[in-house]
């Protein structure tokens, strides 16, 4: 059983195609939030998209819609040309890897590094009554951990809960890309880390995405990261893309451009 979706012929060849998606939270109540209205987005295979935007602009919800953590009200979401609305979150996870802002979400803190990696490697296969950890794979796991340059290869029997946030996040990144996936989703995955480990994890992310040629959508609070990494940049505001720059256009942008746009938006909103 493969973890990746079979490619179906689709009209525009995009890896992700979000078509006319609308999403309103708490409709009809005083807490109603109309977030997306006929939202469209296409991401070609191999693109690394950085997403920025103010708080509440809908970045996390966009990722949640893709991963199936929240259902869309209407519209369609295609991955590799296949409509995925009917798939539950855990079913989509077979071809989508995800790293969360909270470092404790991407691993099981009580299990050891070794056990976490053994589980991750088994993704897409049945989880039956065979031994969880195959000791003969230890060397392979060690070599994977060495790529992180954090010394984790010497701690494989420690419970993940005893690692620091940066170490856990690097491990979560490794784990989410251990089996072949179609799409990597990163939701402010460096936001809870101190500046130094945040740089480390971001460098690793970029290396992984390039080496494994992944398609990735990364939400970040860090404008420098958004400018420096990826080949497409989106700025979201109230459920719409106010900036969408790819390739050369993105390469020519700097943080001032983003800040100016932010200020412009804030003026419009009146604060």
């Amino acid at each position: 059983m493969s973890t990746q979706l079979k490619s179906e012929s689709c009209q525009n060849g995009s890896l992700i195609s979000i078509q006319n998606v609308s999403k309103t939270f708490n409709p009809g109540s005083v807490n109603e939030v109309v977030l997306f209205q006929n939202f469209n987005l296409d991401v070609p295979k191999g693109q690394f998209v950085s997403v920025v935007g103010s708080n509440g602009s809908g970045k996390t919800t966009l990722l949640n819609l893709l991963c199936g953590s929240v259902p869309a009200d209407s519209g369609a979401i295609f991955i590799k040309g296949q409509e995925i609305s009917a798939l539950k979150e855990f079913q989509r996870a077979r071809f989508i890897g995800r790293v969360f802002q909270d470092p404790s979400k991407g691993t099981c803190p009580e299990l050891s590094i070794l056990e976490n990696m053994a589980l991750a490697e088994n993704k897409g296969k049945p989880f039956g009554l065979s031994m969880g950890v195959n000791r003969r794979r230890t060397d392979f796991y060690r070599s994977q951990l060495e790529m992180l340059h954090l010394g984790l290869e010497d701690k494989i029997n420690l419970p993940v809960g005893s690692l620091s946030g940066g170490q856990r996040q690097a491990l979560a990144l490794l784990i989410s890309t251990m089996t072949p996936i179609d799409l990597l989703i990163l939701d402010e995955h460096t936001a809870a880390l101190d500046p130094k480990s945040s740089e480390t994890v971001m460098e690793l992310t970029d290396t992984f995405i390039r080496e494994k040629q992944l398609t990735a959508v990364m939400v970040t609070h860090n404008l420098k990261f958004a400018i420096r990494y990826g080949n497409r940049l989106l700025m979201m505001h109230r459920g719409e893309c106010v900036i969408d720059a790819a390739d050369e256009q993105k390469a020519s942008m700097d943080t001032d451009d983003l800040l100016n746009k932010f200020n412009e938006i804030s003026l419009e909103v009146g604060n």
């Binding site: 973890t3 979150e89 855990f90 079913q91 996870a93 077979r94 890897g97 995800r98 969360f100 404790s104 979400k105 991407g106 691993t107 099981c108 803190p109 009580e110 299990l111 056990e115 053994a118 589980l119 991750a120 088994n122 993704k123 897409g124 049945p126 989880f127 039956g128 009554l129 065979s130 031994m131 969880g132 950890v133 989410s176």
Partner: peptide
């Protein structure tokens, strides 16, 4: 210590991780 057992322990500790494993 089996695969199913490790998954059970994850389900109690961090259900989101089980979801991530499909």
């Amino acid at each position: 210590r089996t695969k199913s057992g490790l998954l059970l322990r994850s389900a109690g500790d961090n259900p989101q991780y089980v979801v991530s494993l499909g």
